[in-house]
């Protein structure tokens, strides 16, 4: 028996039972039957044709008008069949696209995975979570000599275009000269690359810093990036970590201001993307002070646990629906 014959038989059974005793049970079975029809991709006009066939068998004496009316119904259903098939084909296409994006996203993950280097003096924590499948935030750690270079960038925009753009930033950074480069000079270099290669409607904000363990100096510069925080253990206070500068890609000749400060034992450098500060709850945007107080709650934990806890809290506050890519990095001087 073919699948179609089986369906016909089942439909005939259900229909005759229903016509004899019009029970809700049979109607419920009818509803379940329709699920089976969809599973087997039976289109609406096929169902009408099935109905006609079954009615012909159940009521051989059906009036001609009744019989003809079914043919008319069949004709009228063709448009729905049209739409049904288009829907199926679009759904297939969507699945295909999604699996392609899946592949691209996992490729991006491998490309951008930055190992967190080990430092005796520093405890480092990082969390970076994309809002959609692909991440428009970028972070990078490099241990060069004894110092640590850290970068956070955010491409204005989300999704695939941002991700593509970010891959370019990664390669631009990788191709910069190996020797230690001061953050403001690195930004100037990248700015030229971005200005030349990226569409003028796309901008990138970036923060770059270098920590020198010998002098305990933190050199940094910013290109329009969301300010991070500095925690001063001595005063037990958080300050904004401000580094002024134009976003990357606006003008070829932009220069960046060099900043530096001493990091004392117990101090923390907190870097983030605007996905952190633009967390929205039902009460509106989250205030920077709220982020500070979240960090303060977990401050005594290791850096990785602090960032994870802060992320989880903010994720929960937003109903587990990130609106923007989220990156939070904490560097804590231990000794």
């Amino acid at each position: 028996m073919t699948a179609k014959d089986a369906l016909t038989e089942r439909y005939q059974d259900l229909l005759s039972v229903y016509l004899k005793a019009k029970t809700e049970t049979t109607l419920y079975k009818g509803q379940q039957f329709s699920r089976k029809l969809l599973e087997q991709q039976i289109s609406p006009e096929d169902l009408v044709s099935l109905h006609i066939q079954v009615m012909d068998e159940l009521f051989p004496d059906m009036t001609e008008e009744m019989r003809d009316s079914f043919d008319f119904l069949l004709e009228a259903m063709i448009g729905y069949g049209f739409a049904y098939r288009e829907h199926q084909s679009l759904r297939d296409k969507q699945q295909q696209l999604e699996s392609e994006i899946e592949v691209a996203a996992s490729m991006q993950q491998t490309l951008l995975l930055s190992d967190v280097p080990e430092f005796e003096e520093l405890d480092i924590g990082v969390v970076s979570v994309p809002a959609k499948k692909m991440n428009g935030d970028y972070y990078n750690f490099v241990k060069s000599g004894s110092s640590l270079s850290v970068a956070v960038a955010d491409i204005i925009g989300k999704g695939i275009p941002a991700a593509l753009c970010m891959s370019m930033i990664k390669y631009a950074m990788d191709s910069l000269p190996e020797e230690q480069m001061k953050p403001h000079l690195l930004l100037e270099n990248l700015n030229r690359v971005v200005e030349q290669n990226v569409n003028s409607n796309m901008f990138i904000t970036m923060f770059h810093g270098v920590y020198e363990p010998e002098s305990h100096k933190f050199f940094y510069a910013g290109a329009g990036h969301e300010p991070g925080f500095i925690y001063e253990a001595k005063e037990d206070r958080f300050h904004d970590l401000i580094a002024k500068g134009l976003v990357l890609g606006v003008s070829r000749t932009t220069t960046y201001h060099p900043y530096e400060r001493i990091i004392e034992v117990g101090d923390m450098v907190i870097l983030l993307s605007d996905g952190v500060t633009e967390c929205r709850t039902s009460k509106g945007f989250i205030e920077r002070e709220e982020i500070v107080s979240l960090i303060r709650n977990y401050m005594d934990l290791p850096a990785q646990q602090i960032v994870q806890n802060v992320f989880q809290e903010l994720d929960r506050l937003q109903g587990f629906e990130l609106r923007d890519d989220f990156t939070l990095i904490i560097l804590k001087r231990m000794v």
Binding site: E45, D46, S49, I52, D71, L74, E75, I78, G81, F82
Partner: peptide, 10 residues
């Protein structure tokens, strides 16, 4: 059959 007739005419 009926269904194919309807498809062809459509």
């Amino acid at each position: 059959g009926n269904v194919d007739q309807a498809r062809i005419t459509t």
